[in-house]
């Protein structure tokens, strides 16, 4: 599989003059393959958002290299690389550039000089992917937070990117908005095989990933599949992270003397409770 992103021993600080301050990102390496889905989790201030900004060249590391689609990222190829990526940020209001939904989705296309006829096709196609095609002429103030984030995703998809970065895209939404957005990214994953990096502290979002990277104080604290990572239980909670509901319940039930296997799936947990009830 083609490697689309790799970071090698990245170090970055916002205050290079102040040598006594810790680095925001400190010696992180990372490889990502085409079609992969990676969640980066960590508490606020763990360096996860800085990491995202380094990936798309909003920041350049003081040490180490970021490579995208096979080439090292430089000031020269920055715009070309960016045209193959999309990024959705936290605040739904602050990334809505256009006057209406369709204008906003077209923004990146205009910037990249896509001809008008092609744009109309792509705008509609991208909005259909996030189920917002009926809102072409709506103005942002008449949309919910979840709808605005879906438009932002469409704005990124319109460029037909190879990599989509979600930087805490669901953290300011209400439960319904969060669910809408997660449903949309799940569908995208199934239908398009798009590579996604989601920076998040929402566990439901993290559980969808193939691989989870846990950040703490600028360093990579843990990395692995969701079951591998969440098996570290207590260690994660001490970092200010949560465990999935099923994992928390399993812990509480074990304390109460039930013999249960570690699991993150509510389905599995309830099934094993049913069996132990009828056998017990």
């Amino acid at each position: 599989m083609e490697r689309i992103l790799s970071m090698e021993d990245i170090r970055f600080t916002y205050t290079p003059e102040e040598t006594d301050k810790p680095y925001a990102v400190d010696g992180v390496s990372l490889d990502m393959h085409q079609g992969e889905w990676i969640a980066v989790v960590g508490h606020n201030g763990s360096g996860k958002s800085t990491l995202a900004r380094l990936m798309i060249g909003l920041l350049f590391p003081q040490e180490g290299t970021v490579s995208l689609f096979g080439d090292a990222l430089t000031e020269e190829n920055l715009w070309d690389k960016r045209s193959q990526m999309g990024m959705v940020f936290q605040n739904p209001d602050n990334q809505f550039v256009g006057a209406t939904v369709q204008d906003d989705v077209a923004f990146a296309l205009e910037n990249n000089g896509i001809p008008f006829e092609e744009m109309t096709v792509r705008v509609r196609e991208a909005l259909a992917q996030v189920k917002m095609e009926r809102f072409l002429d709506h103005e942002p103030q008449h949309l919910s937070g979840g709808q605005k984030q879906r438009v932002a995703i469409a704005g990124a998809l319109a460029l037909r990117p190879r990599l989509l970065i979600l930087d805490e895209a669901t953290s300011m939404l209400d439960p319904q908005g969060r669910e809408e957005v997660i449903r949309v990214i799940l569908e995208l994953r199934e239908k398009t095989g798009l590579s996604v990096i989601s920076i998040t502290h929402d566990l439901e979002e993290a559980l969808l990933a193939d691989r989870i990277i846990v950040m703490n104080r600028g360093r990579k604290f843990a990395e692995g599949t969701p079951p591998e990572v969440f098996a570290r239980g207590e260690e994660l909670t001490s970092l200010g992270l949560d465990l999935p509901f099923a994992a928390r319940m399993t812990g509480l039930l074990r304390e109460r003397g039930l013999e249960l296997e570690e699991t993150m799936s509510e389905r599995k947990l309830v099934e094993s409770l049913w069996t132990s009830r009828s056998n017990g």
């Binding site: 990526m85 990024m87 940020f89 550039v97 205009e110 910037n111 000089g113 896509i114 705008v123």
Partner: peptide, 20 residues
């Protein structure tokens, strides 16, 4: 925030832009 979002979406001034 908006400036960053615009930059990420490839905005670098009017040159070479098409109009939707």
């Amino acid at each position: 925030d908006l400036a960053v979002a615009m930059e990420v979406r490839g905005y670098r001034g009017g040159e070479g832009r098409t109009r939707y």
